[in-house]
Design a protein around this nucleic acid. Structure first.
Lengths: 216, 216
DNA sequence: CAAAGTTAAACAAACATTTAATTTAATCAA
DNA sequence: TTGATTAAATTAAATGTTTGTTTAACTTTG
C-alpha cells in the first residue's frame, strides 16, 4: 500500500519536508551517498514514510526535479517575449534571471549538475529535454535580434549558452572557494549569494555584449 | 598486511589497471555508486587486490588524483612564462592547453567536477590548493600584460577563470548532448573530442580577446 | 468505524573490508 | 643448475555493516 501522487497534485507539509530534506542531502552528499535513513532523520519522519509517499528513493528524486523544472520554461518565455523591452534589455533580463535561478538555488542546481554528469540517472532524459527547449527558445531570440540587425551575425548560440550555464554553475558550485579568494568571509551565505548574482550577471552581460554587439 | 606505495613510487601494471578501471567507473557512475566489486570486475582482478594495493576505496581515489594533478602546474607555468611568445600568443596557448586538458580527459575531469561539488570528499583539499595556484599563476600573467598596456585594466581574473573553467567543463560534461544538438552523430568519440577542443578554444579566444583587448 | 497516517521491527541484498590458505616469484647457498 | 627458503601476489570464503524496502500492528482523523 502506498500513497503516490500525480504531477498536478499538491504536496502536504510532510511531503514537502521530505522533498526539501532530500534535496539538501542529495545536493551536498550525492544521490547514492544519501540513504533513505539520512533523509528520514533530516526531515524528522519515519523511514517508511518515504516509500509510503513516494514509492522509492528513485521516484523521490524524480519528484524533486519535476517540482522545479515546470515553471522555468514559462519564466524564460515570458522574459524573452516581452515586446515592451528592447532586445538588449531582454538579453540583460535573460542573463539576470538565469544567474539568479542558479546561484539563488544552490541545492537544487548542484543536484542537477550531478545528475547531468552521471550517465545512468533516470532523471537525465527529463533534464535533457528541458535543456533542449531552453536552447531553442534562446536561439530563436538571438536569431530574431540578428534579423533586426541588433546582434552580430556570426554568433554560436550553443557556445553562448554553454558559457552562460557553465560559468554560472561553476561559480555556484565553487562559491565558498570564491568567497575565500575574494576575502569575503565576513559575508553571510545570503549576502554572498546576492553579491555573486550581481557580479556574475554583470560579468556575463559585458561578455555577451562584447561579442553580440560591439566590433564587427 | 598490505602493500601501499609512496607518491614517488611507480605503479605496476596491475595497479595501473585498477587505477584506470576505477577512474572510468567513478567518472560514469560516481564514487559511491561504484563498488569495489565493480572495479575489481572491470580490471579483471580479485576484490582483495584493491585493499591489498591501495588500502581502501577512499585511498584509491586519492591515488588517482595525485597521479594526475602533479604535472599540470608545471605545464601551466611553462606556457605562461615562455618569453619567446607575445602575450596574446601565450593567452591563446593557455586557453588551448586548458581546453585540451579538460576535454581530452573526460573521465578524470568528470571525477574532479563531482568531487568539487561534493563537500565531504577527502580529495577536496587537494583540489582546492591546486585551483588556488592556477588562479595565482594566471592572475600574475594577466597583471603583467596589463602593466605592459596589452590587456585592459578592468579585468576580473576570478570571473575570467570561472568562464574558462566553467564553459569548458560544461561542454565536456554535456558533450553527447552537444553532439546530438549539432547533428554530429556521425563522428567517433575521438573525432568529437577534437572538434570540441577546437571549437571551444576558438570561442573562448574570441571571448577573452573581446574583453581583454578590444574596446576601451 | 473505515481510511489515512504512522510506527518499530524485520527483510534480503549489497556493501567494504579482512582472513587464512594457496600459488607465484625471487634469492641464494650448495 | 638444483633445491630450499622467504616474501609477494593472489584467491575464495567469511565478516559484520548498511542498504532500500516491506510488513504488520497501532494511532489518528474525518
Amino acid at each position: 500500500m502506498c500513497a503516490q501522487f500525480d504531477l498536478h497534485m499538491e504536496y502536504n507539509p510532510k511531503q514537502l519536508l521530505i522533498l526539501e530534506s532530500a534535496e539538501k542531502l542529495f545536493a551536498s552528499h550525492g544521490f547514492h551517498a544519501t540513504s533513505v535513513r539520512d533523509i528520514a532523520h533530516e526531515a524528522g519522519v519515519n523511514i517508511a514514510m518515504i516509500s509510503y509517499y513516494f514509492g522509492s528513493k528513485e521516484k523521490l528524486i524524480e519528484s524533486i526535479f519535476l517540482k522545479r523544472i515546470i515553471n522555468w520554461k514559462a519564466i524564460l518565455n515570458e522574459t524573452l517575449a516581452d515586446n515592451s523591452k528592447t532586445y538588449i534589455e531582454r538579453l540583460d533580463s535573460l542573463i539576470e534571471n538565469f544567474v539568479r535561478r542558479i546561484i539563488g538555488n544552490p541545492c537544487f542546481n548542484l543536484m542537477m549538475m550531478r545528475a547531468q554528469i552521471q550517465a545512468d540517472m533516470l532523471v537525465n532524459d527529463l533534464i535533457h529535454e528541458s535543456k533542449k527547449e531552453v536552447y531553442e527558445v534562446i536561439g530563436t531570440f538571438i536569431n530574431a535580434g540578428q534579423e533586426q540587425g541588433i546582434f552580430n551575425k556570426d554568433v554560436d548560440v550553443l557556445m553562448m549558452v554553454a558559457t552562460l550555464t557553465g560559468t554560472t554553475n561553476h561559480i555556484m558550485s565553487t562559491r565558498h572557494h570564491f568567497q575565500r579568494m575574494s576575502n569575503l568571509e565576513h559575508l553571510t551565505d545570503s549576502e554572498l549569494q546576492e553579491y555573486l548574482i550581481i557580479h556574475t550577471s554583470n560579468h556575463l552581460k559585458n561578455l555577451f555584449k562584447a561579442i553580440l554587439i560591439h566590433e564587427a
